[in-house]
Amino acid sequence: MSLLEVKDLKVRVEEREILHGLSLTVNPGEVHAIMGPNGSGKSTLSHVIAGKPGYEVTGGQILFRGEDLLEMEPNERAAKGVFLAFQYPVEIPGVTTWNFLHAALNAQRKARGEDEMSSPAFLKKVREVAKSLNVPQDMLKRGVNVGFSGGEKKRNEILQMALFEPAVCILDEMDSGLDIDALRIAADGVNALRSPERAMVVITHYQRLLNYIVPDYVHVMSKGRVVKSGGKELALELEESGYTQFEDAA
């Protein structure tokens, strides 16, 4: 059984259809890149998979390990193992990062019927993960993302990914707002989390990120559809010729 199956997905925002029948199959261990120009529906896809309110699914389905993902609340999807790394992680003043992470981790565990993790056990775990990703302890004590730089925010997303150990990670425009050094650090973090059980869907506008996170498959989106799929060489091809050819094709 595939890990994630998007079948002929049609999505509307208000009265406008954004996705016009998109299909995508992701198996454990695979890294898929989804590329496309602005407005092609890449972020919409990531939002709908994670369950963001405001989108109306008018056709098709999304299955996660064969279960209907669209019937689940966003928190249920997270507990099942779906993780969305946000393009713009929000700031939550007054809620410390580790308080938030502890509450979220325990909510996921509870939903899966596992025991909640005690504060000392959690602190030990989060410290280990932070250390392995070079995230300073001080960041954990601050309000979630409050006053963080763009790079710190993305590192905080990867920290959460490492902590929650999801089955599928959707990385939405991870490179936006990052300079080349910050990008490399973030990509190293992601690569460290690659495993035969875990799949990743890397959404990006630029080929640059894929030099650091090398995908198994590349899909090109245009105007709400996947218009071409191929191996990692497709990304290089795009770098040469741009998206214009696909816009005409769509």
Partner: peptide, 20 residues
């Protein structure tokens, strides 16, 4: 939404924001 996407049920996410 961010908090729910991390696994917190809506009421719990609201509670954290109200507490803050």
């Amino acid at each position: 939404f961010y908090m729910r996407a991390r696994g917190l049920p809506e009421k719990e996410a609201q509670a954290l924001l109200i507490q803050a």
